[in-house]
Design a protein around this nucleic acid. Structure first.
Lengths: 341, 341
DNA sequence: TTGAAAGCGCTAACAA
DNA sequence: TTGTTAGCGCTTTCAA
């Protein structure tokens, strides 16, 4: 590691020119060819590298966009991240990823500290949304775009999807393949997706004409495979006399946990138990059996959020907008039975 | 979004005290209780939030650590990230994740720009290592810790593991369960892990006494499931007369691709084809069949790298060290056959 | 085209 | 304990 970094005044001195000329020659305009050559030579000799902090302070911008996310272990967020990164990079922004830890308080802290000069804008996909967090987002010093629930009414740009409707699609599909004893494997109810997906499930089963089917909900500790595995065991164990014949899971990770649990109990998927997920992750696609899942188009949501951010950066006064992305059912092996093949 | 942020002079004016007193009252020491109260009240009224850029410029540090990684889609890096994050957060550092894109040139750019004032230190896990990148890492303006090959000789702190030896363990296990027609599914050979793991495989099969077994290597386009699936199909298709009875894969994602390919060909794993992976990822553990894998202890490597970084931050002169982490075979269903049960 | 100088927001050395 | 002041590295306005 080289300890002493050259500064612009040092480059200027080495080149025998003024500080202003050195700056113009290296990064600005209006310098003569000879000047540019001279300064560049001096910069190269000294191994000069422009300091981002000084520049940021002077310009009032950092050229960094933050992405705040509750659980980077969920591939959904990785997909969003890549999509956001690709969009903002084109405009010269670097993406900074920060993990919130899931609670609204930690998210409030994060929004506050990130917007305190580290980033020019913040994309956030909060798992839990408190009034304080909404206020913090609205009053942040930098533009904020939320991925999740629509916050247009709160004056915040957002990218939203109908995950309740998506669960409805999963339920409809499950009923369509003849299953009547359906368990819903959800994540924590006080999270934004947990609440929406529960609503979707309850609505879908109420909507349906079949009065006789069994319906039961089990809430996992969080939206992970491990939590899904444990919760699925509980759910399945509750129905030994008349076993469930389908599990609708609130996301792919929970669904994989459910399939694993079924397999540990000697149940065949989909023959004994049909399983659906949500998010349409790559891992669900290559799992065995491959997972029927409702795509929420993570990549597109990330891209749209990034585009909203760029618009906001160009015009901070633009009125808050919500972009909606439609869910889409992808049927695969975990619900594909002979009778319908 | 609130457009005008209050600055410290504004807070000071509002409180009717000097700039220095305001700074001391809010973040420093040596202010009277009355002063603290007064300034805090003013700060609250104005919604004051300390600006990170000004602070960084003044202090010469950003309290950010960078983590540069080739492919954030690989769960191994996510594990490392979480571990690094946990360690550095305790010391008040924020982790900034940046994706390099895999090529040495883009990594060089990244090291250069990140170390240009954005971060106080950089942890990097490069997929490909060019002499230029090594030079850049050594001469960066901030401490650098590499995860991967040992770079102690190059004067760079690093966390390394014996992935060649790990592949040796996988091969030994495969031979031990009686398989003799072994395919090696590797990632690109010019990557650091690709090179090491190929070396490990070649060494292991040369070492072994069985002269008669078939050995074949197939290189996938990268270390992903999709690439593994495609490459495994090629590999398996090359041996129709005397089919392979085992695939040793260079990582878990490739291994999952191989199992999927086997399954598409109607082969049973492990009965017809035993498959091993490397990295011992959670997804391998819950895959069906669960994946025998060589753990390289990603989490621990991340933790150790973070610890090296903190040491370097405390004492930039400390002599370059390499920490070694031992591979460890975890046997699961993908190689577990009746005969040995 | 070039140079002098101001100033972004902050902390800390120094003086009172 | 409090205030004055310098200065971190940079870009840009203004004047020459």
């Amino acid at each position: 590691m080289v300890t002493n970094r050259a500064t612009l005044p040092q480059v200027a001195e080495r080149a025998g020119v003024s500080l202003a000329s050195a700056s113009r020659a290296l990064h600005g305009s209006g310098a003569s060819v000879a000047m540019v050559e001279r300064v560049k030579a001096a910069a190269a000799e000294l191994g000069y590298q422009r300091d981002a902090t000084g520049r940021s302070l002077r310009l009032g911008r950092t050229f960094q966009i933050g992405f705040a996310v509750a659980d980077i272990g969920n591939p959904v967020y990785v997909e969003m991240m890549s999509a956001i990164q690709a969009v903002v990079a084109e405009r010269g922004y670097r993406l900074v990823v920060a993990t919130t830890g899931g609670t609204p308080e930690s998210s409030v802290d994060l929004v506050r500290s990130l917007s305190g000069g580290l980033v020019d804008g913040l994309v956030i996909s909060p798992l839990r949304l408190s009034p304080e967090l909404v206020t913090e987002m609205r009053e942040a010093a930098v533009p904020v775009v939320a991925i999740g629930r629509s916050l247009e009414a709160d004056g915040i740009d957002s990218v939203s999807t109908d995950s309740a409707g998506g669960i409805g699609q999963a339920v409809a599909h499950t009923l369509a393949i003849g299953r009547r004893r359906i368990g819903f494997l959800n994540g924590p109810l006080e999270t934004t997706p947990g609440e929406a997906r529960q609503r979707g499930f309850d609505h879908a089963v109420a909507q349906d004409g079949f009065g006789a089917h069994t319906v039961d909900t089990q809430v996992a500790a969080d939206f992970t495979v491990a939590a899904g595995l444990a919760a699925a065991h509980e759910l399945l164990a509750r129905h030994t006399a008349a076993p469930l014949d389908a599990v609708v899971a609130a996301n792919d990770l929970l669904a994989i946990g459910a399939i694993k649990a079924a397999s540990e109990l000697g149940l065949r998927v989909p023959e004994d138990l049909a399983v659906t997920g949500m998010d349409d992750t790559e891992i669900g696609q290559v799992y065995q059996p491959s997972l029927t899942s409702v795509s929420l188009h993570s990549s597109e949501r990330g891209r749209r959020a990034a585009e909203l951010m760029l618009r906001l950066l160009d015009d901070p006064q633009s009125s808050p907008t919500t972009v909606f992305v439609e869910p889409e059912l992808r049927v695969r092996e975990s619900t594909r039975t002979e009778e319908q093949a």
